[in-house]
Every structure is written in structure tokens, then in C-alpha cells.
Amino acid sequence: MSIISVKDLVKTYNKGRTKAVDNLSFDVERGEIFGLIGPDGAGKTSIFRMLTTLILADSGTATIDGMDVVKDFKKIRQHIGYMPGQFSLYQDMTVEENLAFFATVFNTTIEENYHLVKDIYEQIKPFKDRRSGKLSGGMKQKLALCCALIHAPLVLFLDEPTTGVDPVSRKEFWEMLQKLKHDFKLTIIVSTPYMDEAVQCDRIALIQNGRFLTIDSPDGIIDKYRETLWAIRSNQMHRLLNDLRQTPGVLTASGFGETHHVTVDPSVLTQESLKNSLAALGHTEIEVTAIRPTIEDCFMDLQS
């Protein structure tokens, strides 16, 4: 049985005018990292708040390990760990006091479950007597993760843990999550606006405007992509984008860092013919390569 089972979940705001979560159903399996991936305002936080029993759905049902989010909300709260997008620990308590407090609230002790947080807590232990409000962003994040873990939850809910975090720290955070999954078979549901983090998850839902664009493993989503996709570069990258858009047979052209990604109609264009027409427009150092799409390519394709 799936550890999380969501059926036809709906959440509206402003007396029904804003549909935040629009009839969503999904399951999360035991021991997997499940990602909700999409921009701000897509409905990610509303889903988290309904699953963590903090707000009520307009309609639909959700269960966590068989417990209903409405009927069994008290029981659910004992068995989940939740790290909200905003830092929500007690800022005027020290690092150690926060951790002890969360353990006590859940009727346990730091010692009892220390194995779960050890790797992460040791990194902030030198600052255990510092007030949590005075910690750096990275340390706050680690402490919040420890506090969400200290009662040995069945499921860990992480709402945008990496938003606004630099790429190096993001990578380190994901290494911590992978280790939790590997060492303790913990089920983790995580949301992020960063498409490149999709590959860290076992399965993902791409979400926009309260609806799922698709749910599958990252590779499964990529395998379903049907467009012909090329990565292209030349000596004049900015002009290249406009020139590509004017080229017959080019369906879409988008900047992707060091290359532009272009979807084409292969019955109109070959790589050679495209190279030739770009060369005729004055581009040099032209490179055209067929590529496997990224999740961001898939998101853009499904979004349109």
C-alpha cells in the first residue's frame, strides 16, 4: 500500500475564485523521494498544508499510512516531520534547546533518535549554545531538518527547502536527503521551483496552476518527450536566438545557458540545412547537436 494516497484533492481561496489545487490525485510509495516541481503559485504549499493537516481541503481525500488527514489529524501529526518554507523554529531558543523542545513535544528524547540526525547535527553542534535566530541560513536549514526528524517520522515533508540557496549548498542539501533515504528508508516529499533538482527524486509531479502536467520518474518523463530537440550555439548567441525563431521548420527556440534548445520539424530541417542557413546569416562556430531533453525542456513542452 502506498504511504501517501491523495484522491481528487481541491483547495480554493477567495470564496472559490482562486483554484490553488485543482482536483489532484497521486500516491507516494514507501521509501521514495517524491518531488513536487513547479513555479511559485502552482499550489505546492497548499498541498503540503493539507497533507500535514494544517488546512482543510474543499473536497477530496488524503491518507498518510492509512490515516485520514481530517479524521486522524492528531495521530498524523505524531508521525510526520514538516519543514515549512519559512524558518519556523523558536528564534530566541538555542540550537540545542530547539532540538530538545521538539523531541519533548513528541514524547521522545534527543538520545533516543540521535542516530537519525547525527550526521546533520554534528555540523551545527559547535554552535549548540547559539540562539537559532542568530544562525546563518545554511545552519538554520540544518537545524530545521534535525527538528523535523527527531521524533523519527514516517514521512518527511520539505516545502521548498532549497529556494534562494546557492547551487553548492543545494547540492549538499540533496546529499543529506539521499543519505536519509538510503540509511533509514525514509519517505520524503519535497517541493522545489528548481527543475534541475528533479533528477534527485525517484518520482516527480510537474505542477502548474494547481494541476499536474505529468507524474512519473524523471527518466519516464524524458522518455515520453516526442519533439526533435537540438542544442545549438554560434559566435553570436543573442542574435542566434532571434535568427532561429525566423527559420522555417524551427518550432521553438529557448536559451539554455551555453546553448539554445530548439525544437524543429524534421521534415523541413536537417542539422546540415540549419547550419547552412545560419552560416548564410553570418554566424560562425556553429554547432548543432541532437540532445536528450532535460526536465526543464519537458516542463516547457507540457506547459505550452
Partner: peptide, 20 residues
């Protein structure tokens, strides 16, 4: 200051065209 944080991929690119 982080003008494109949290926006969808298409809008992120349109935003950069405004920057250009």
C-alpha cells in the same frame, strides 16, 4: 536581486529578453 527566483521556465526566459 534574484529577479527570476521561483518563476516558471518560460517566463524566466521572457524576463531575460526584457533584460537584453
Amino acid at each position: 536581486d534574484e529577479p527570476t527566483g521561483g518563476v516558471d521556465p518560460v517566463t524566466r526566459r521572457q524576463f531575460w529578453e526584457l533584460i537584453y
